[in-house]
Design a protein around this nucleic acid. Structure first.
Lengths: 252, 252
DNA sequence: CGCTACGTTGATCGCACTCAAGTATAGTGG
DNA sequence: CCACTATACTTGAGTGCGATCAACGTAGCG
């Protein structure tokens, strides 16, 4: 009676074609920081990038590796993690199409402070940090755009600091779910589905708690009809109330 | 037998002369992002800045105010705070000479997400965000320098996220003390003194804990000879062991 | 169809928060 | 110069949120 697959996620197959040269051009010119550049300019920049594919769970670079390259997500999702001495991981960000990560800094001897790992099948475009800086040096508008994106991420990180400092687990998870559904959500039969494999462990690492606590909170949310969830997936079904718990709107 | 004042801090008087035009020029040309500019350029930029003084505890801008200006610390220290619905404040950063804060973004309708407050007597240089962006737009090297500073602050914020997610209060306080002594420490009779009024409350707000817990940890550290401390001041006396507790070196 | 990884739920424990009372410091005014 | 007061700090007792430890379900793949 039940179908073989119950996951509502659309699982993308790894298509080697996803990183063709043609598609690279299209992606690059749609990047927030290269928008508005002349087509010839884009072509020249494109030649400096190389593409690479990763399978789900594969490590793109590891915390402590020499930080020599900058990456742009061309397909799939990438997660950035910091490790702790106790083996616990902290999930800092999940990056989707068009977002960059890696090293901007040219300082020799610098290392990546975080690990980048493919959350799904992933295709990235990569360039050496030096080459990227050379591109920016003669394109002030692009540099300003990168600055704006970095400043926005700083704000987001500081918001996370506030939440970890002051709010209980339930509220932090509600907040994270709202933000994830903004970024990756799409209408589906089960509700507003977060289009990404998302485990209780992932959620725990994003909110500074344990898998067990995350599971209890999600179970509670589900009982109250705020979300629907299964193995590695979650859909928001009552966003207003979730926002209220997250502190994003008055409880009403 | 005891002297009238026991505070080892050098308390700076508010000198209105601290923000004279001459000194402004000197400060501006030493800024990381204006370093290397021609003197005439600096003079032109200087004219776009206005100076302002604040008394200790005074608010420079409040979270939620329209974010129209960028600020540079010319004297004293400024703290950036986020508030919570429960009245608890979270201290994100303490800024010293030459560091910037406020709004880089030009987006109309944007507001400051944090409050900026004078920790000591403070002098700041201020410029409209638009004017600052105009300066950057024609000086790519300066824009890159601002980007590097912002990226470094993002890394620091993400490190704080990791600590709040995974480490106990004692370790977070030890880490914060090490970083503060790096930034503001100077040799003194009592040890390596953090040259800034620093209350237990400040420390608690920096590390996501309560005043009482911070007090207990500092008392413990003092008993073990790691620090010396009094009302609103603290000096590091055993940095290696403090670093070990902070997780910055093997326990040995 | 069985194996593996993910998820759930229960019981217990402990770190840090809360509430509370008391002490010490450093300005202030007499 | 010293009592007075405000504010910072300390310390104790009790509590609770969330971590830990443990056992058991269950989905999905090979």
């Amino acid at each position: 009676m039940a179908s073989r697959r119950t996951t509502p996620l659309e699982i993308e197959e790894i298509e080697p074609a996803a990183c063709t040269v043609d598609l690279r051009l299209q992606i690059l010119q749609q990047l927030p920081f290269f928008a508005g550049l002349a087509p010839a300019d884009i072509v020249a920049i494109n030649e400096q990038f190389r593409e690479r594919g990763y399978r789900p769970g594969e490590t793109i670079y590891h915390s402590g590796d020499a930080g020599t390259h900058l990456y742009v997500v061309a397909a799939g999702q990438v997660k950035l993690l910091r490790h702790t001495v106790t083996g616990q991981d902290v999930l800092l960000e999940i990056l989707a199409l068009g977002e960059f990560f890696g090293s901007l800094a040219p300082l020799a001897g610098d290392v990546y402070p975080e690990t980048a790992q493919a959350q799904t099948a992933v295709c990235v475009l990569t360039i050496s940090s030096d080459a990227f800086r050379d591109i920016l040096r003669v394109r002030p508008a692009a540099t300003l755009a990168v600055l704006d994106l970095t400043a926005a991420r700083l704000q987001a990180a500081q918001e996370t600091v506030r939440q970890l400092s002051a709010y209980p687990v339930e509220q932090r998870i509600a907040f994270t779910l709202v933000k994830l559904s903004d970024k990756l959500g799409q209408e589906a039969e089960v509700g507003y589905l977060i289009q990404m494999p998302l485990s209780r462990e992932d959620l725990a690492q994003m909110t500074g708690t344990t898998m067990e606590s995350a599971s209890r909170v999600i179970s509670q949310f589900q009982k109250e009809g705020l979300v629907r969830s299964g193995r590695q997936w979650l859909a928001v079904t009552d966003r207003p109330r979730l926002e209220a718990i997250a502190g994003l709107r008055p409880p009403n």
